[in-house]
Design a protein around this nucleic acid. Structure first.
Length: 614
RNA sequence: GGGACGGUAGUUAAGUUGGUUAUAACGCCGGCCUGUCACGCCGGAGGCCGCGGGUUCGAGUCCCGUCCGUCCCGCCA
């Protein structure tokens, strides 16, 4: 029988002993963080998931233990029996357990360890590549242990809140039928020749059918799979808190989400969001306003630096003397472009005088927008008399246009006006990212993390359709089962671009943390939507057969939402990347550097699946 | 699919206009030290400079290709 493990049980963790435990006989187990050999005495910092405790071995008092202690190396797994002693003058205020030490009377090496590839400590001093290849070591680091424990708290809080509100947790299939459109699916071959499963992008269709089936309130913490290019905040498999509710409108969905977020912040961070949102709701911003002011649908409103749309002014002034703007203005004047659905726009952003920018800095901003496909970035420094200097437009611009632009931007002497024009989407992308970059560069928000500022808002009332690749065609902006505003139903076929819908995103500090919609359960309106996106009845049936069929069997009015759980965890833990809140994440190319996935398989496997590689 | 940056001892990095034997810190190994706590002191080992090709008398350094990592655009109904 083993002395430790079987006979001597662990009595404490390495993070809990205090001065009040002095003289206690304890048994600790854990990993060797570091040893300090002073000759006649050896100090060992012992680590487990709760912390560090110093264990001391004295040659003159416990020679057998001292001899073993001399053999200890980093990351050896050991068990120690000893007595808690007051460190007196020698205490270490940097450690929670620093008031005491354990005098080791008996020690056993439970397992040796190879020299770690990188040291296990708070500060990262290895590249992410090295860390990912040895993830089991990286996961020993206190910061990742903390992140995953906070994530576990968030799971727990989520289940509690939703269960309290009558939600039923139901699992749905991961292996599903492939449906075209949307994100690229991961495919899973089956032994039926030529037939494949797809890994579910989300439980969207299933959760709607659960509403049809009368489950009324469903939720699931569920893995989703999308075979698209990755980012710091996008993994090929990710976790959603998936929610669907029957007999509800948009406000009802918002209400449950607000309760969930309040509880998450309370239970995971101890932060009371009601200090900031006393009525328990988050502000709402119309999609159109979000695009106009910030250039995207997930604005970070911890700082201002909003955009000013100058399209109408440009048209009014016929380009304002600026040669490059004249063709654009002309297209509005002759009716090629619609003012309410512009294909090209002119936007400006005012950088206030208290953030002076050098010519070189503005050049860098221009280089930055060019990496996103912009042709250039207009600029004008506003002088005391409102004149433009340091600007390529200074000599061309008419006085009227210049003054109108200054006024529209609220520009004061010393301010800098940054200007972009052209394709609507390109201008929005560039100007939105430019705003964020400036926010960070000027120190208005931190490079990542909340800065203790939790700015939540709903972005509501987006258009149901967006332009397709072909001229004058439309596609569903989200999915074609989103309910349009009642007032817009007549426009679905006559003027699709103007139709708004009951879709919504919850945005926190510039990150979309949830998105959903009220669903379309009325088959007449549904038919109009399909028609607007050029989908025949037959095609629609083929694409969404079981959902359409189900919706015809007494579907209640319903709607729902899905939270990006990993992103929530990332924000709650103040992490820079999703990879820091996942135990075993993949790289930007979708590789697992530890396991080597994806990797080749045996020919035998492929033969069983009737698959040939090329 | 497009772009930017990076890949050099176990780890993190430096490496000049191409030029002797490729540096440093930490880690590792050996020795010394009874109060350290990023312990200290002495000594030592450790390299396919991502991979392949090219230019050159000579390549870590220049050129082409390729793989890998990070980020951005596109993409993510």
């Amino acid at each position: 029988m083993a002395r430790f493990i079987d006979e001597l049980k662990r009595s404490h963790t390495c993070g809990e002993l205090r001065l009040s435990d002095v003289d206690a006989e304890v048994v600790l187990m854990g990993w060797v963080q570091r040893t300090r050999d002073r000759g006649g005495v050896i100090f060992v910092d012992l680590r487990d998931r709760d912390g560090l405790t110093q264990v001391t071995f004295d040659k003159s008092e416990d020679e057998a233990a001292f001899t073993i202690a001399g053999q200890l190396r980093s990351e050896y797994v050991i068990a120690v029996r000893g007595t808690v002693r007051d460190r007196g003058e020698q205490r270490n205020d940097k450690m929670p357990t620093g008031g005491i030490e354990v005098v080791g009377h008996e020690v056993e090496i439970l397992n040796t360890a190879k020299t770690p590839v990188f040291p296990i400590q708070e500060e990262v001093n290895a590249t992410e590549e090295t860390r990912l290849a040895h993830r089991y070591l990286d996961l020993r680091r206190p910061i990742l242990q903390r992140n995953l424990r906070m994530r576990a708290k968030a799971y727990h809080a989520t289940r509690n809140v939703l269960a309290e509100h009558g939600f039923i947790e139901v699992e749905t299939p991961y292996l599903v039928k492939y449906t075209p459109g949307g994100a690229r699916n991961f495919l899973v071959p089956s032994r039926s020749p030529g037939n494949f499963y797809a890994l579910a992008e989300s439980p969207q269709l299933f959760k709607q059918l659960l509403m049809v089936a009368g489950y009324d309130r469903y939720f699931q913490i569920v893995r989703c799979f999308r075979d698209e290019d990755l980012r710091g905040d996008r993994q090929p498999e990710f976790t959603q808190i998936d929610i669907e509710m029957s007999f509800v409108n948009q406000d009802d969905v918002f209400s449950i989400c607000e309760k969930l977020v309040f509880r998450l912040w309370k239970e995971v961070l101890g932060v009371d969001l009601s200090e900031r949102y006393p009525d328990g709701t988050f502000p709402r911003l119309r999609f159109e306003d979000s695009m106009r002011l910030y250039g995207n649908d997930k604005p970070d409103r911890r700082f201002d630096l909003h955009h000013t749309d100058l399209t109408a002014l440009t048209v009014e002034h016929a380009g304002g003397g600026i040669g490059m703007l004249e063709p654009l203005a002309a297209k509005f004047a002759d009716g090629t472009y619609r003012v309410d659905l512009p294909e090209e726009i002119v936007k400006a952003m005012r950088v206030p005088a208290d953030h002076p920018m050098s010519r070189k800095q503005v050049d860098e901003l221009e280089a930055y927008v060019k990496t996103m496909g912009a042709k250039g970035l207009g600029r004008a420094k506003v002088g005391d008399d409102g004149a433009w200097t340091q600007s390529p437009f200074a000599k061309q611009v008419t006085d009227g246009f210049r003054l109108a632009v200054n006024e529209a931007c609220g520009a004061q002497p010393g301010d800098l006006i940054l200007l972009m024009f052209g394709d609507e989407q390109l201008v929005h992308t560039c100007m939105a990212n430019l705003r964020l970059k400036l926010g960070k560069d000027l120190g208005l928000i931190p490079g990542f993390g909340s800065g203790d500022d939790w700015n939540l808002l709903w972005v509501v009332d987006p258009p149901l359709f967006e332009r397709g690749e072909q001229k004058d065609t439309w596609v569903a902006a989200h999915h074609p089962f989103t309910r349009p505003h009642d007032a817009c139903v007549d426009s679905i076929t006559s003027d699709p671009g103007t139709v708004l819908c009951h879709r919504y995103d919850l945005v926190l500090n510039g990150v979309e943390i949830a998105g959903g919609s009220i669903r379309l359960h009325d088959s007449e309106v549904q038919a109009k939507v399909f028609s607007a996106i050029g989908l025949s009845e037959e095609e629609a049936k083929e694409k969404f057969s079981f959902l359409l069929e189900g919706l015809q069997h007494g579907a209640p009015p319903h709607g729902g939402i899905a939270f990006g759980f990993d992103r929530l965890a990332m924000l709650l833990t103040e992490s820079e990347s999703l990879r820091d809140v996942l135990a075993f994440p993949k790289t930007a190319r979708g590789n697992d550097l530890m396991t080597g996935a994806p990797g080749p398989v045996d020919d035998r496997q492929l033969a069983d699946l009737k698959i040939k590689t090329v």
